[in-house]
């Protein structure tokens, strides 16, 4: 009996150890990139959008965030939800959040809760409730409606504008 207890104890430590290392390796790889959106003229003389490194970033510039989620494992990932915060120096550009097969919601409380735009209200100092504006959003959530099968990847994105002082 003492032997069995010992074996079980060893087994538990071993499982904890292996469970620990196993738990660190997820099956989804998440990439988040920021670009500055600029307008350039192509060879045909048309004005097109281009995305460049935001090395020079000034108030008024449009920043394009693109987040890619990829299933690098062998089993499907389910109930996939992507959250992306909006830095305080940026204001969300209305209507710019996109993601194929996703339901998109926004947060105005720093990512604690999310809801659709018409259900978001801010309360001012007098207690009056106002419909939240895009510049009040502090995070975006994309709820992926499908399973993410092994090898599949999806992309979500949004645009935000660098605020000028006092905005």
């Amino acid at each position: 009996m003492k032997n069995l207890n010992f074996i079980i104890a060893m087994l538990i430590s071993f499982l904890m150890f292996s469970a620990q290392s196993f738990a660190e390796e997820g099956n989804v790889k998440l990439t988040n990139k920021a670009f500055k959106q600029v307008i350039k003229t192509n060879d045909k003389g048309e004005k097109v959008l281009d995305y460049i490194d935001p090395a020079l970033a000034l108030p008024g510039d449009v920043i394009f965030y693109t987040t890619t989620f990829e299933n690098i494992g062998k089993e499907p990932a389910t109930k996939v939800v992507i959250n992306n915060p909006i830095h305080g120096n940026l204001k969300y550009r209305q209507g710019s959040a996109t993601g194929k097969d996703t339901e998109i919601k926004f947060s105005i409380d720093g990512g604690v809760s999310y809801d659709s735009p018409e259900k978001l209200f801010v309360t001012d100092k007098t207690g009056k409730k106002w419909a939240a504006k895009p510049e009040d959003y502090t995070a975006i959530r994309w709820i992926y409606k499908k399973q993410l099968l092994p090898g599949e990847k999806g992309t979500v994105s949004f645009r935000a504008i660098i605020r000028k002082p006092g905005e």
Binding site: G26, N27, V28, L30, N32, A34, A57, P59, I63, Y65, T67, F69, G73, E75, A77, T78, K79, V80, V81, I82, N83, N84, P85, I86, H87, G88, N89, L90, L148, I162, R163, K164, P165, E167
Partner: peptide
């Protein structure tokens, strides 16, 4: 919002496996 600020964010993905 000012010059010199580092504009930083980290996205997260929650899922079940």
């Amino acid at each position: 919002a000012a010059a010199g600020d580092v504009i930083s964010n980290t996205a997260t993905v929650d899922y079940f496996f």
